[in-house]
């Protein structure tokens, strides 16, 4: 049967080209130069590689091409190639980016494209950095602690509107680009006193989880150093998942800290109402 749906619109200039043999590798359409940081924990430098460019390519494709053809030992992390795993973080022309989601067509290819590792973390090899600190930080945050189940079968009831807010935070793919760009970590290296935007988002997701009953506010104020954040919003600007890190996560957490420490009675009322109303 012919669908009621109109014939798909095929006349899209620029996209539908001459019919390439579908399964074969694309024909190159030009060349570009990439200056890639090569080095280890002790030293490194930018090394220039020129490679061919074809339609739709992203920075990670160029890196892989260079790796396959010119520098087999070029170190890079990646997994999904679709912006879902948060592995391929780097600084492209100085901007924190997921390499798999950065189209070459959005860059000026008349000049060399620089690709460097995230600078807020110790370099390991080439584009790979030591991000182990992030895993330690996460463990220091009190885990999810649910209230008793709502129904006799051990399940809970939550309205979609109650989970929407937390679902935004749970989109986080742990790419650590926000950590990379936050001046408290990047410039001031306060990794021992400040957990960084990623983990403020994580703490917010737990604190605002409709079922959670643990209190993370004292830790946020003391060992997690939420006070060091001065709301520059650089983290929000780079988040590839478009999480409104500062406005939706950090500021509400800061308000909780203020309430608890400077308005203890008000906080008690809030805790009481938050945790028993449902």
């Amino acid at each position: 049967m012919v669908s009621e749906v109109l014939k798909p619109d095929l006349a899209e200039p620029g996209r539908v080209q001459e019919k390439a043999p579908p399964d074969r590798k694309p024909e190159p359409t030009g060349r570009a130069t990439f200056k890639i940081w090569r080095g280890d924990a002790t030293r490194g430098e930018l090394v220039a590689y020129t490679t061919h460019v074809s339609e739709g390519m992203v920075v990670l494709d160029a890196i892989h091409q260079i790796q396959a053809e010119q520098a087999n030992d070029l170190a890079v992390r990646w997994n999904c190639k679709a912006g879902k795993c948060g592995s391929c973080s780097a600084e492209v022309n100085g901007m924190p980016k997921l390499m798999c989601m950065t189209r070459l067509s959005d860059l000026d290819l008349t000049k060399p494209v620089t690709v460097e590792p995230m600078r807020a973390f110790p370099p390991l090899r080439d584009l790979v950095t030591d991000v182990s600190w992030n895993f330690e930080v996460k463990r220091s945050i009190a885990p999810f602690t649910p209230r008793p189940p709502d129904a006799p079968d051990g399940t809970w009831r939550m309205a979609q509107s109650d989970v929407d807010r937390v679902q935004e935070f749970r989109k986080c793919i742990e790419c650590y680009l926000c950590q990379d760009v936050c001046h408290v970590l990047r410039d001031h290296q306060m990794h021992d006193r400040f957990i960084g935007p990623r983990f403020l988002v994580y703490a917010a997701a737990l604190e605002m989880h409709p079922l959670d009953v643990a209190d993370r506010v004292p830790a946020l104020k003391e060992k997690h150093g939420i006070g060091y954040c001065n709301i520059t919003k650089c983290c929000t600007a780079v988040c590839p998942e478009n999480i409104t890190i500062t406005d939706n996560a950090i500021i509400p957490l800061k308000e909780r800290v203020v309430d608890e420490y400077f308005d203890p009675i008000g906080r008690l009322v809030k805790i009481f109402s938050r945790k028993s109303v449902r």
């Binding site: 399940t155 939550m158 079922l211």
Partner: peptide
């Protein structure tokens, strides 16, 4: 998984 913190999309009656 829900008891461990997962937040699935909900039905109108909250399941």
């Amino acid at each position: 998984l829900e008891a461990w913190g997962a937040l699935f999309d909900r039905t109108p009656d909250g399941r």
